[in-house]
């Protein structure tokens, strides 16, 4: 589209353009019409713009409003909407097994993780100096399961005592 740089504005007083439009449209009270007409008599710029804007009606009347698409259109559109809804439902049903499988997998993984964490925490215990020892460590180091080392030195010395210096 080529715009004509010569015709940026209507040429009328800017504060008056909206009222001039109302005057053309006939949406004006009698007193406003009198006031606008008085201005038009004394303002050649507004008068010229008003004349041009009024003349355009002769051109614009050539175009006719878009005709009604007819009584079948609403019915056809409803069918189109139903089809779109069905397509959407179908699309959802195609993916739904995968989606539910993904959710089940996620839920199982979540439960498993929770179990592992709970089990791990409950099986750990605190030594006197506050360090954690696992049960497997416990059994490997001490043959007597009832024996519990009371301090770090005892813990280091006990395997050496059992061997009595022999290999």
């Amino acid at each position: 589209m080529t715009l004509d740089p010569m015709i940026e504005t209507s040429g009328a007083c800017p504060d008056f353009e909206a009222r001039l439009y109302d005057r053309i449209s006939g949406e004006m009270s009698a007193s406003d019409i009198t006031a606008v007409d008085a201005h038009l008599k004394n303002c050649p710029a507004c008068a010229a713009a008003f004349e041009r804007a009024t003349f355009s009606a002769r051109l614009l009347r050539i175009a006719e409003p878009t005709p009604d698409p007819g009584p079948g259109f609403a019915h056809l559109t409803m069918a189109h909407i139903r089809q779109a809804q069905r397509d959407l439902a179908e699309e959802r049903s195609i993916w739904s097994p995968f989606v539910s499988l993904a959710w089940k997998f996620a839920a199982t993984a979540g439960v498993a993780l929770a179990l592992v964490l709970t089990f791990d925490i409950s099986q750990h215990r605190t030594t006197v100096d506050g360090t954690y020892l696992s049960p497997s460590d416990d059994a490997g180091l001490f043959s007597d399961v009832n024996y519990k080392s009371s301090d770090r030195d005892d813990f280091l010395v006990s395997p050496a005592d059992e061997n009595h210096g022999k290999r």
Partner: peptide, 11 residues
């Protein structure tokens, strides 16, 4: 208003 005046001007 401006568009209508412009249309006539173009014409």
């Amino acid at each position: 208003f401006r568009s209508r005046a412009r249309l006539t001007e173009v014409y």
